[in-house]
Design a protein around this nucleic acid. Sequence first.
RNA 1: GGCGACGUGGCGGAGUGGUUACGCAGCGGAUUGCAAAUCCGUGUACACCGGUUCGAAUCCGGUCGUCGCCUCCA
Length: 457
Amino acid sequence: MTITLWNTLTRRKEALVPLDPGNLRIYVCGPTVYDRAHVGNARPAVVFDLLFRLLRHTYGPDRVTYVRNITDIDDKIIDRARQTGRDIADLTAETTRWYLEDMAALGVLPPTVMPRATEYVAQMIAMIERLIARGHAYVAEGHVLFEVATWPHYGELSRRSVEDMRAGARVEVAPFKRDPMDFVLWKPSAPDQPGWNSPWGRGRPGWHIECSAMAAALLGESFDIHGGGIDLVFPHHENERAQSCCAHGTEQMAAIWMHNGFLQVEGEKMSKSLGNFFTVRDLLDRGIPGEVIRFVLLATHYRKPMDWTARAAEEARRVLQRWRAVAGDAPPAEPDPEVVAALADDLNTPRAIAALHAIAARGDAPRLAGSARLMGLLEPALGGWDRPAQDEALARRIEALLAARAEARRARDFSRADAIRAGIAAAGVIVRDTPQGAVWEIGPDFDAGRLAELERS
RNA sequence: GGCGACGUGGCGGAGUGGUUACGCAGCGGAUUGCAAAUCCGUGUACACCGGUUCGAAUCCGGUCGUCGCCUCCA
C-alpha cells in the first residue's frame, strides 16, 4: 500500500517514499504550554495521530518515529507567568499535563518522543554557532539574526517572494537588522526573564530554532514528514527550513510538509471577544465525549477549513452510538481495505467514514471494530459514554416504570401504556422496544423531577 | 496593501473532464395497538460570468463571498 500525501512545498500529492525504510520519521509542532488547548489546537494533534496510526499499520509499530515537541520557552509563557505571579516551571509543567490529559481523552496516542525545548538549549546554541560560522547569521546588539538574503530558497515553502514581503511589511523593523525579513535566532534576556548563558551573553532562543534543533537531534538532518497547522507555514516553518538547511548544508529538512486547515466555530472565527472560544476541556466538561470530538475533527478532510458546530457534535454522537451498538465487544479484525485505501489517499477521512458506514450497515462487527480503531475510534478506552448510567437505584425506578407499561400493554390499556411512555420520554429517558424487551438510556435532557412526578401518578 | 486557501443538494461533507459518494434531516413503504428503534425505497447540487471541449461541477480567465498568513495563533 503506497501512502500518498499532499506536500505543501510542491503543491502536489506525492507518494511517501521512506528515506530509511526501517525508520519512518515525522516531526509535528506541538503546543506552546501556557494555557488549556482549544479545539483548534486539537485538530493537528488528532490529524497527525491518525497519520501516526496509519504509518504504524503500514510500516510496523517499531519502524515509525513520531516526535511532537513541547515548547516551554516562549514570551507568551513569560507574560502569563508574570500576570498570574506563577513560577514558569510550574506553569509549563501543569499546562503540559493538561495537554496530555485532554489529548488522551481524544484518543491521541503518545508520540514516540516528546522533547521539551528547555532540554535542548545547548543544541540550539550549537546550531546558531554553525549558522554564524557558515555565514548565514550575524550578531547585532546582543541578538543573533538569520540573514535571509544568504539562502536563495527562502520563501519557497510559503510561496512568498522576499521582495513582496519587504514591500508589505507592517512591522516595525529593528534598526540592527540588515534586512527587514531577517529573523531572530537568539535574543538577550533581562535579569527578570529566563535566560541561558551563551557566546552572545545571557539570553534565550528565538521562536523557530527550537524545532530545528530538536528535529535534528532526534530525527537527523533530513527526515520524512514535517507537520503542523497551516498558520505555521509562515513564518515558523519557512524559518525552520532555512535554519536547518543552512546549518546542515542539506537541500531538504523534510521530504514532505503537511499542514492542517483552520477551524471555525458556528461559521465564525473562534475568538474570545465573540464568546465562542472554548477549550477541549470545556467540551469534555459539557458532556461531549472525547470520541465524539475526535469524530467531528475527522469528518472534514484535514486540509479543508472546518466548522465546529453543536449540530455536528450531535450527529457524530448518534453515529458513534450506533456503531458501538453494532461492534459490541467483537474482537477487532484486520482493517477493511477500503478504509485503509481511503486513509492512504492523503488521509481521506470522509471517504474512510463512508466505508465504515457501509461496514456497519452490513453488521460486520469485527471488521467495523478493526477498521474504526485504525482511526482511533471505537477504542474500548474511549467508550462507556454510550452505555446507560450505572446508578442502580435510578435503573430500578426506570425499569419499574417500564414494567408498569408492559403490564398495561398486556391488559390492552393502551392509553395508560402511552401515558407512561410519554412521561418517561418527557423525563429525558430514551426508550427503544426490541424483540427482547425495552432498552433504555439516559438522554441529554434527563430530568429526575419529572420522573418522580410520573411515579406518583 | 501583498500572498494563500476555500465556496458542492435543507445541513454536514467526499469526488472529479462523460456513469449513485456517503451521513443527517425530509418524503414514501415495511414493521408496530399507536409510537420509538430498525429495514427498504426516494427527491434536491456543484458561488457567479465568460472561455477551451463532442461534452465541465471537474480545465483556463475574470467577478463576488468566506477564511487565513504577513503581528512568536494549530
